Measured scan of single mutants.
Amino acid sequence: TTLTVNTQTYTFTSEEEAREFARRYGAKTIRKTNGTWEVHG
């Protein structure tokens, strides 16, 4: 199964959650914005 996250942004309140998600789905960018963490595919 392949998950494609081209134009979607996922927002997390903790860096740990964001990094775990990025690691699991191979997202390329993690960015902190206004106190939340954004993961970009």
Rank of each mutant, 00 (worst) to 15 (best):
N34F: 02
Q8W: 15
T4H: 13
A22C: 09
S14T: 10
E17M: 06
T9L: 10
K28T: 14
K32I: 08
R19N: 09
R23H: 06
Q8P: 09
R24E: 05
N34I: 02
L3W: 04
T29L: 15
F12G: 00
Y25E: 03
E20H: 04
R19D: 06
T36A: 09
A27T: 06
R31N: 06
R23K: 11
G35W: 02
V39M: 01
T36G: 14
G41A: 13
R24H: 06
K32E: 09
T9V: 15
T36R: 09
S14G: 02
T29W: 14
G41V: 15
E15K: 03
N6R: 03
W37Y: 04
T4P: 14
T11C: 15
T13D: 11
R31Q: 11
N6Q: 11
H40M: 14
T13V: 07
T1K: 08
T33L: 12
N6L: 14
R23E: 09
I30A: 02
E16N: 07
T2M: 11
F21S: 01
N6T: 12
G41S: 13
T33K: 12
S14V: 04
T9G: 06
T11A: 05
S14A: 03
F21G: 00
K32M: 12
T7N: 10
F21K: 01
L3Y: 05
T11G: 03
E20L: 06
T11F: 12
Q8L: 12
N6H: 11
E38M: 06
H40F: 14
V39Y: 01
Y25R: 07
V39H: 01
Q8R: 08
A27M: 15
V39K: 01
Y10R: 06
E17W: 02
T7V: 11
E38W: 04
R24A: 06
T1E: 13
E17Y: 02
T33E: 13
K32A: 09
H40R: 12
R19G: 03
T11W: 09
A18Q: 00
S14D: 07
T9I: 15
N6E: 12
V5Y: 08
G41Q: 10
I30L: 05
F12R: 00
G41Y: 14
Q8I: 12
F12W: 01
L3N: 14
T1L: 12
Y25A: 07
E15S: 02
G35K: 03
G26M: 04
N34Q: 04
N34K: 04
Y25P: 00
I30N: 02
T29F: 14
T33S: 12
H40N: 08
V5F: 08
H40E: 14
T4R: 08
T11V: 13
T36L: 15
F12H: 00
Y10G: 02
E17F: 02
T7P: 10
E15F: 13
G35I: 01
H40Q: 14
T1Q: 12
A18I: 00
K28W: 07
A27V: 08
T29G: 05
H40S: 14
L3D: 13
V5K: 09
E16V: 08
G41K: 10
V5R: 05
T7R: 05
E20D: 09
R24S: 05
A22Q: 03
T4K: 10
Y25I: 15
R23Q: 09
T13P: 06
N34R: 03
T29A: 15
T9F: 12
N34C: 14
T33D: 13
N6I: 13
T4I: 13
T33Y: 07
F12Q: 00
K28M: 13
V5L: 09
F12K: 00
A18S: 01
Y25C: 14
A27D: 03
T2F: 06
T29S: 09
Q8M: 11
I30F: 05
T36N: 08
G26E: 03
S14R: 04
T13N: 10
S14W: 01
T4D: 14
T2R: 10
Y10P: 03
V39G: 01
I30V: 10
R19W: 10
S14E: 04
K28R: 08
T33W: 08
V39R: 00
R23V: 06
R19L: 12
T2H: 14
T33H: 10
A18N: 00
Q8V: 14
E16T: 08
Y10N: 03
E16W: 11
T36Y: 13
G26Q: 05
E20T: 05
Y25D: 01
R23C: 15
K32W: 11
T1I: 10
T7C: 15
A22F: 04
T2G: 13
R31D: 04
T36E: 08
T36W: 07
H40D: 12
G41N: 09
T1F: 09
T2D: 13
I30G: 01
E16L: 08
G35Y: 02
V5I: 09
G35T: 04
T29V: 15
R19V: 10
E16Q: 10
K32P: 03
T33M: 10
F12A: 00
T13G: 08
T9S: 08
W37T: 01
T1Y: 06
K32S: 07
E38F: 06
A18D: 00
T9W: 14
Y25S: 08
A22W: 03
F21C: 12
T11I: 14
T29C: 15
F21A: 03
T9D: 03
Q8T: 12
Q8C: 15
F21E: 00
T29D: 08
Y10W: 14
Y25N: 08
R23T: 06
R24I: 09
V39L: 02
T7H: 13
T1C: 15
T1R: 05
E17S: 05
T2W: 07
K28N: 09
K28Q: 12
T2A: 13
T29E: 10
E15R: 04
V5T: 13
E15W: 12
A18M: 02
